[in-house]
């Protein structure tokens, strides 16, 4: 299958600081890819850069949506892409919605901007909310965000993102602020709608638990670079990069016998401003050899995946 979104050598600079350094990523139609990393890894910056949300950052490389390179589009053309072909939902549904506007208007807005009549837009908003499991959707179009719970607000956000029928949905930690039971429902809804409408989903998260159930593929970022990409089966069977292994081992699990201590990755994540020479991860890596501090490893293909590590 062909890629709907192909990211090539993406760089994101804030001032003269390189936050994302040469990221390649591909999303095929209907595919669900998780971009995993800890705070400061550049995963959220990547998501925002794909939509060019921050005018003050410099985005380099190419972002191909079909046959257009989003990096070269004008701001006006980009506005048309956002919300129609490339949609995004954010972590905190309570701040991402305008508290003073009715929910129905906010969901219908992307359609209204594109010239759909008020009646049609509202009807489609109600349908979308209904598909997302908002009870009595048609009646609640006139409600305000504060009348909704956190999980319901995230559904409203999703409805606004999906109402124009985008090809790609970027979900930046969409369930981090939600309770587990609500999180599960929201993820199931994203999964279902993406499958029905053939939407490719890029899930940005730090939670490996939800990745296992949701994604087809995983890309792991560390200090602004992709260090590993694999199918979920391969990744969870045993990540190839020591960082991915460390991450997976530090997750406490309810399905395993209790151990004396949780495995940890020693040290703290490096900041993009203080990237060590060679492999960024080598100061924290138990498998590091002298070569790791001298030479940055390149991504090599292993089986169906890719790993950037001298030791594999």
């Amino acid at each position: 299958m062909t890629a709907v979104l192909r990211v090539e050598n993406l760089t994101v600079d804030v001032g003269n600081l390189r936050i994302v350094d040469g990221l390649d990523l591909e999303l095929r139609a209907g595919e669900r890819v998780a971009l995993v990393g800890e705070s400061g890894s550049g995963k959220s910056m990547t998501a925002r850069a794909l939509l060019r949300l921050d005018p003050s950052v410099t985005v380099g490389g190419q972002v191909w949506l079909g046959d257009r390179d989003l990096v070269t589009l004008s701001e006006k053309q980009m506005q048309r892409v956002r919300g129609t072909e490339l949609a995004m939902v954010f972590q905190d549904p309570s701040t991402a919605l305008n508290p003073l506007r009715r929910v129905g208007d906010q969901v219908a807005e992307p359609l209204r901007i594109r010239g759909v009549s008020r009646r049609d837009a509202r009807r489609r908003a109600a349908e979308m909310l209904d598909r997302l499991g908002v009870p009595r959707a048609a009646e609640r179009l006139n409600a305000y965000p504060h009348e909704f719970s956190g999980g319901m607000r995230q559904r409203v956000m999703l409805a606004a993102a999906l109402i124009t029928g985008p090809r790609v949905l970027i979900a930046d930690e969409p369930t981090t602020a939600l309770d587990v039971r609500v999180q599960e429902k929201v993820l199931a809804l994203i999964e279902q709608l993406a499958a029905e409408d053939g939407i490719a989903v890029l899930l940005i998260t730090h939670d490996l638990g939800i990745v296992a159930g949701f994604a087809d593929r995983v890309a792991v970022m560390y200090a602004g670079r992709k260090v590993e990409e694999n199918s979920v089966e391969t990744f969870f069977a045993g990540p190839s990069h020591p960082y991915g292994r460390g991450l997976l081992n530090s997750v406490p699990r309810v399905d395993r016998a209790l151990t004396e201590r949780l495995d940890t990755i020693p040290g703290t994540a490096v900041k993009p401003s203080a990237r060590p020479p060679g492999c960024s991860f080598h100061p924290r890596c138990s498998a590091a050899v002298s070569r790791c501090s001298a030479e940055a490893p390149v991504l090599v293909t292993i089986g169906s995946g890719q790993v950037a590590c001298h030791e594999v």
Partner: peptide, 17 residues
């Protein structure tokens, strides 16, 4: 609550869901 705890293992997670 317990049934909703995600498990970082695709097969187990699929079964759980």
């Amino acid at each position: 609550l317990l049934a909703a705890v995600p498990i970082p293992d695709p097969a187990a997670e699929r079964e759980r869901r």
